[in-house]
């Protein structure tokens, strides 16, 4: 079942084009990543989906409802953690949960949420006194207070130390395991690789790539890099089948080409009696793909 549909979303703030034709679909039960650098238009996109901003153009559906015209129905059925949204410093943890759970009739009792998200020990503490990880757990608990079908998490792990980030990842998996669809906005690649079933890479308001993390790696960078040490001249490798380029500097050889290049280069070398001890093969990682995708100038003349 499709839970979210975005078709041709556009949003402009004055003369800043924040979202410039974004389209994607999110299926029930998946963790869908929206990955992109700061200012890419991620927050704007998910805020439009939550009915917090009015799109300039495009068709949006959340749980088959238009979030612009059916704000209240949509918000009743979604959970939300907004970027840069905090609670009053002197509000206590239990007060926040009590308040937010009184908004909707659905959802578990807030005392259960305290236990589920391991907030029992800090129920009486003020928001200001919580650690980063405890705040994230509170935000997650608040996002789930109305038993939503979809949750939007916008930079949940921003500013957390690595240990707390790993714990936040576990929280996110736990949400999905409860059958809730998760839309995860982030600018961390490792987060997408670790958590997301599918991801949309957004830059300058446009979708640069869409698919599973694996598909992105395979489609964008099918080539591999083979490196080894050899002090003989091996320029002749360039004529081996599939090899695109050969570089040799000070005995370090770098050969680039698509997948089959690895056995073919190895065989050709062995045939000539060259058996390097340190041959290493590197495939592109999601990080390479990502950096490649967002490095492109977004508004080159051909784009217009």
């Amino acid at each position: 079942m499709t839970v979210i549909e975005v078709d041709g979303l556009h949003k402009r703030y004055g003369n800043v084009l924040a979202v410039d034709d974004v389209s994607f679909r999110v299926e029930a039960g998946e963790i869908f990543g929206i990955l992109g650098p700061n200012g890419a238009g991620k927050t704007t996109t998910v805020e439009c989906l939550q009915g917090l901003r009015r799109p300039d153009a495009g068709r949006l559906r959340v749980l088959r409802l238009d979030p612009t015209t059916h704000q209240h129905e949509v918000r009743r059925r979604i959970g939300s953690q907004l970027q840069d949204s905090a609670l009053p410093d002197r509000l206590k943890v239990w007060e926040a949960l009590d308040l937010f759970s009184s908004i909707s009739r659905r959802g578990p009792a807030w005392r259960d949420l305290l236990a589920t998200w391991d907030l029992d020990g800090v129920a009486d503490r003020s928001f200001a006194s919580l650690s980063g990880g405890q705040r994230q757990r509170l935000f997650v608990a608040l996002a789930l207070v109305n038993d939503p079908e979809v949750v939007f998490l916008d930079e949940l792990t921003q500013g957390l130390d690595p240990g707390a980030r790993r714990m936040a990842w576990d929280l996110i998996r736990e949400i999905r395991d409860r059958g809730v669809t998760v839309v995860l906005v982030t600018h961390y690649m490792d987060e997408v690789e670790a958590l997301c079933d599918r991801v949309a890479v957004i830059d300058h308001g446009r979708v640069r790539a869409l698919g599973t993390p694996r598909q992105l790696v395979e489609s964008a960078h099918s080539e591999v890099t083979v490196t080894f040490t050899c002090h003989e001249d091996v320029a002749w490798l360039a004529s081996t089948r599939f090899v695109d380029t050969v570089h040799q500097t000070d005995g370090t050889v770098v050969v680039i080409g698509p997948g089959p290049v690895v056995p073919l280069v190895a065989a050709a070398l062995v045939e000539r009696g060259i058996v390097p001890e340190d041959m290493a093969v590197r495939r592109a990682s999601l990080e390479d793909v990502y950096l490649d995708l967002i490095d492109r100038p977004a508004y080159s003349p051909e784009d217009r």
């Binding site: 917090l52 209240h72 918000r75 009743r76 949204s85 905090a86 009053p88 908004i103």
Partner: peptide, 16 residues
């Protein structure tokens, strides 16, 4: 403070 810290937006997101 509510505006600066996004408390209003958070409440609005929950349909308050």
């Amino acid at each position: 403070t509510y505006r600066e810290r996004g408390v209003m937006r958070r409440l609005r997101a929950s349909s308050v």
